[in-house]
Amino acid sequence: MKMHIFAFLLGVLATTLALGQTELNITLKTKTGNIEGTLMYPSAPIPVPVALIIAGSGPTDRNGNNPMMTNNSLKMLATDLASIGIASLRYDKRGISQSKSAGLQEAELKFEIYINDAVEWINLLKDDKSFNQLVVIGHSEGSLIGMIASQNSKVDKFISIAGAGQTADNLIREQLKAQPPMVMEQSAPILNELVKGNTVEYVPPFLNSLFRTSVQPYLISWFKYDPQKEVAKLEKPVLIIQGTTDIQVNVEDANRLHAAKPDSKLALIDGMNHIFKNADANPLTNMMTYRQPDLPLNGELVKVIGEFILTK
């Protein structure tokens, strides 16, 4: 995979900051198309710390949005980090928004491709003398991607926000428990085969959205990674953040990660949901925040992250 590194980046940056601008569009060139990102700089003398922000599952863009809902969670996180002197790079996942040209056929997509993309962004940032510290922030599914990519020696620190603390197949099993018993009865044999690395030819029509043939290679590649084992491999400072009103990932997941990496720092943020916003635990009102792009982030989040990154 080739990186597109702007040789004149420092000169552009100096001009940009002089003009009072804080964002630059950055392109990562790959064999299957370009991945587009936004580099946000704080109003502070360089070099500064930089955080690579990795989005969660689904068709999520650099701002934390998808075609079904707009919340601007990742854009707000980048802005809040800049306000305390931390630069950040966030990007559209391949096949999404401005990175659409890098999309693959669903049957060709593997979890490792997302990991490799994160590693290439890490390489790009580490080569830039504008930064004196490189931190990876992974949100939700991006937590697992980030913790594997952060095994790279170029990463100084890793932050997990709302990261699962168990393998994805077990996470799916837990979620399916809320469905009628028939759903689990027919899903379990499929999950068991996928965990073994085997595809399944027949999928009941009502389960096709979850286990369709074309998505099975991705599920197989995803299921083999255990977050507890991967976070334990990190020989660097780790911060695990979890909101107490997250209805997608719970506090027990954070506790599992912390137990697997005992020297990590665990921060439970009261009243913060999956997209970093204040919400109660009621699923209906909680989900309403997913469509409120102007609702600010929980104020504790950037404080916790800032203390972790800026403390030597």
Results as ranks from 00 to 15, higher is better:
1 M>N: 05
123 N>G: 11
157 K>F: 11
70 T>L: 08
84 I>Y: 09
281 A>F: 14
134 L>P: 03
120 E>W: 10
163 G>Y: 04
81 L>P: 06
97 S>M: 08
38 T>V: 11
222 W>N: 07
101 S>P: 09
153 S>L: 14
248 Q>Y: 02
208 N>M: 05
18 A>V: 09
153 S>N: 14
294 D>C: 00
82 A>Y: 01
62 R>F: 01
25 N>I: 12
251 V>Y: 02
272 M>A: 04
73 S>Q: 15
9 L>N: 13
10 L>T: 14
47 P>W: 02
63 N>R: 13
224 K>T: 08
144 L>Y: 04
312 K>Y: 05
129 K>H: 09
139 H>Q: 10
292 Q>F: 06
45 P>Q: 05
282 N>S: 09
286 N>P: 05
236 K>Q: 13
203 V>L: 01
90 R>W: 06
109 L>I: 09
213 T>S: 08
79 T>R: 13
42 P>F: 02
222 W>H: 09
247 I>H: 04
280 D>V: 07
273 N>T: 07
127 D>G: 15
77 L>F: 10
299 G>H: 14
16 T>R: 13
186 Q>N: 12
170 N>V: 00
46 I>C: 00
304 V>R: 11
226 D>L: 01
142 G>C: 07
43 S>H: 08
145 I>W: 02
77 L>M: 15
4 H>C: 09
241 I>N: 06
255 N>P: 01
267 A>F: 07
46 I>A: 13
